[in-house]
């Protein structure tokens, strides 16, 4: 089975097509930045982009991916991604940091489709990503910063 991750084609040996993309990325491809949180698409820690759209990789199965292009935190790039990552650093957003890969992937997807989100837009787009440390106010501030930067 073939998997296109971060611009590289990977050949996966001995895998079932019902394997969640999450475990293929982490255990077979060896990219650890995408996190396991709940296994039920309830927390957003495993968020990656599939053909540019955010998906929960724990409930996206290899059979669903096909020849789609998967992008993970390690390779997310472009003006929006750079603005988001810079804003995350400037605002010192992470605490434990475990959920932040997923938060960033969701935030990039939000700003790609909606460069000037309202507070309600942010709350709505980000409510699938849990942060147990409670960095939510900092996430809101960082998204606002990134949006402002992109608008300049």
């Amino acid at each position: 089975m073939k998997l296109m991750v971060n611009g590289q084609e990977r050949v996966l040996e001995g895998v079932d097509s019902d394997m969640p993309l999450l475990w293929a990325i982490r255990d077979l491809v060896g990219l650890k930045g995408t996190k396991f949180g709940c296994g039920k698409a309830l927390c957003g820690a495993c968020t990656v982009h599939l053909d540019g759209q955010p998906v929960r990789s724990c409930q996206t199965f290899l059979a669903d991916v096909g020849d789609g292009k998967v992008t993970t935190i390690e390779a997310i790039s472009g003006p929006v991604a750079e603005a988001v990552k810079s804003a995350w650093i400037k605002n010192n957003v992470p605490q434990c940091g475990y959920c932040q890969s997923g938060q960033i992937m969701s935030a990039v997807a939000l700003l790609e489709s909606n460069p000037k989100p309202s507070r309600d837009d942010v709350n709505s787009a980000m409510s699938g990503n849990i942060c147990r440390c409670g960095t939510y106010p900092r996430i809101r501030a960082a998204i606002a910063d990134a949006s402002k930067h992109l608008g300049q």
Binding site: G33, T34, K35, I89, P94, G97, Y98
Partner: peptide
């Protein structure tokens, strides 16, 4: 915080 960059680029190891 010193641990922010690795927690933003996915390289921090848990």
């Amino acid at each position: 915080r010193l641990d922010v960059p690795p927690k933003v680029d996915g390289s921090a190891r848990f």
